[in-house]
Amino acid sequence: MDLALLRTFVTVHRAGSFTRAAALLGLSQPAVTSQIRTLERQLGRPLFLRQARGVTPTSIGEELAHKAAPHLDALVEIAEAGLDDEAFRTLHLAGPPEFTAERALPALTRLTRDPGHDFAVRAAFGTTEEVLEGLSAGHHDLAITTARPRGALFSVAPLCDEEHVLAAAPHWADAIGPVQAGPRGVTALAGVPLVEVHESLPFVSRYWASVFECRPTVSGAVIAPDLRAVLACAAAGAGLAVLPRYLCASAVARGDVVALHEPAVPPLRTYFLVVRTGTLALPHVARAHEWLLRASADWS
């Protein structure tokens, strides 16, 4: 059986789509279709069921993927191990702008300073949907997301939890006074402008639901699609904001903003570290993946 056909088959199985697999393999979609048909003729059984959106494996396809994928991944690892140790690789990382800039990139920078870990880093920012699309298309090696992706194409590891803080400039804190949990807390915040990253108020809505047991009833006064800009606007007095603790901790310590409430159980958001299944066989991807997981133990 041709190993190239098996590689194409495993890629389609993981991608769930001939088109997506073609992008990962650097082939045309008709070439991928032709290879799968060739393999199906050799086996005398269909491997995929064609659907309106992508493909799903048959029982024979699942069995073949279960048997073949680990061996193909091992071959990739063997091939990579045989490369010159001095080869300089480029790691392509994608994730949300604030977390990637404040957490992931500084950690990887420390790794790249180690003489034993020679690779360059290229970063891209985007939403979870955008970075997963780029990862599935082969544009990125590692992705940081705020939602756990599903499907055989991706391998996922929880990275860390992000604690959220309700914060505002000191004059707002003085005007509002103590904020209680539950519906009474919302009453104390009535009339205070909101600063957010999107019109849908994703951070405020999550905090309101978790702490105040309701939904926000006003729109944002300032919308800026970067949490660092949201923090700057809140510190300037534009209104209250819900911010990751790691991002606003220094501003709170300086007194630029004040934490308005400290709930017993603060709202959290989980980050995930995602790779395409099989790519941890690549040494530079595996090293960066392990390093970020190790570094995240100190993130809070």
Rank of each mutant, 00 (worst) to 15 (best):
D2C: 00
A4I: 04
A4Q: 05
L5W: 01
L5R: 05
H13R: 07
A15H: 00
S17D: 08
T19L: 01
A21N: 08
A22H: 01
A23C: 06
L25W: 04
S28Y: 04
P30D: 01
V32E: 08
T33C: 11
R37H: 08
R37C: 06
T38Q: 07
L39F: 04
E40N: 04
L43C: 03
G44C: 05
A52S: 10
S59T: 15
G61T: 08
L64M: 13
L64K: 08
A65T: 07
H66Q: 09
H66A: 10
K67H: 15
A68R: 05
A68H: 02
A68D: 02
A69R: 11
A69M: 15
P70K: 07
A74D: 04
L75P: 08
V76R: 13
V76L: 12
I78G: 06
A79Y: 06
E80C: 08
L83E: 12
D84S: 12
D84E: 10
D85N: 10
R89V: 05
T90R: 13
L91C: 12
A94P: 08
P96C: 10
E98C: 15
E102V: 12
E102P: 01
L108P: 12
T109L: 14
T109H: 13
T112R: 14
G116M: 01
G116D: 14
D118G: 11
A120H: 11
R122W: 07
G126N: 09
T127L: 03
L135K: 05
H139Q: 13
D141N: 07
I144F: 03
T145N: 02
T145P: 10
P149C: 14
R150P: 03
G151N: 06
A152L: 14
L153Q: 08
A157R: 06
D161I: 00
E163V: 15
L166T: 09
L166G: 15
A167M: 09
A167T: 13
A169W: 04
A173P: 09
A175S: 14
G177D: 05
R184A: 00
R184T: 00
A188E: 07
L189R: 11
L194R: 02
L194W: 02
V195I: 14
E196P: 07
L201D: 09
F203E: 11
Y207D: 01
W208D: 03
V211Y: 01
R215Y: 09
P216A: 08
V218P: 07
V218H: 06
S219E: 06
A221V: 02
P225E: 00
P225M: 00
D226L: 15
D226Q: 11
D226T: 03
L227D: 04
R228S: 13
R228V: 10
A229I: 03
A232P: 01
C233K: 15
A234Y: 02
A235I: 13
A238F: 08
G239P: 11
A241C: 11
R245K: 07
C248F: 00
S250P: 05
V252T: 09
A253E: 05
A253G: 04
R254K: 12
G255K: 13
G255D: 13
V257R: 06
H261S: 03
E262M: 05
P263L: 15
A264G: 14
V265P: 00
V265M: 08
V265F: 03
R269L: 08
R269Q: 09
R269F: 01
V274F: 04
T279N: 14
A281H: 04
A286K: 05
A288I: 03
L293E: 01
R294D: 11
R294I: 03
S296P: 07
S296N: 13
A297I: 01
W299V: 14
